[in-house]
Amino acid sequence: MSAPSKDDLIDFIYEEARMLDDGRFDEWLDLWTPDGIYWMPLEYNQQDENLVTSLLHEDFFMIKLRVERFKGERTFSQKPKTRCHHVIQRPFVDRLDVDAGEFVTRTAFHYVETRLDDQTLLAANARHDLVLVDGKLKIKRKRVDLLNSDAAFGNIQMFL
């Protein structure tokens, strides 16, 4: 791929959600650039990434650590495993700049996480900043804004 189309970007977002729901985390890790950042703010419309708390603000090492932890023999909060489910709206392509190599989508979605008898439903918006690396789309940055980011939550264990 040298110039992704709007459909390519949209397909990418759908495919990502499917990987997460299928638990194909190693494939999902391959979607990231090594300097990728996965951010989930705590405040509505939060601007500051570093000097106030976020729910998540993780580099590739931390994202990988989460995936490794899921597999661990002594990861008791994943015995039994959590399952997740994304229902995504068709992504908006907010930026498609082939010359600059910058692609931005925004996706509204509902996310369900379940383990044993518990089920949590969250509504969120995701902004993906994608780049082309060797002809493939990669995630450079993913920002997930929960509709109720300031609410009290129980565990949120998987990736939104």
């Binding site: 989930m40 570093n50 000097l51 106030v52 708390t53 976020s54 729910l55 998540l56 603000h57 931390m62 650590l65 989460r66 932890r69 008791f76 909060s77 009290a152 939550f153 129980g154 565990n155 949120i156 264990q157």
Partner: peptide, 19 residues
């Protein structure tokens, strides 16, 4: 801030271990 989100967030791995 990093300590807080890594250890005390509902999304924290360390938090999941404890809870």
């Amino acid at each position: 801030a990093m300590y807080n989100r890594l250890i005390n967030a509902p999304t924290s791995m360390v938090g999941h271990d404890d809870l």
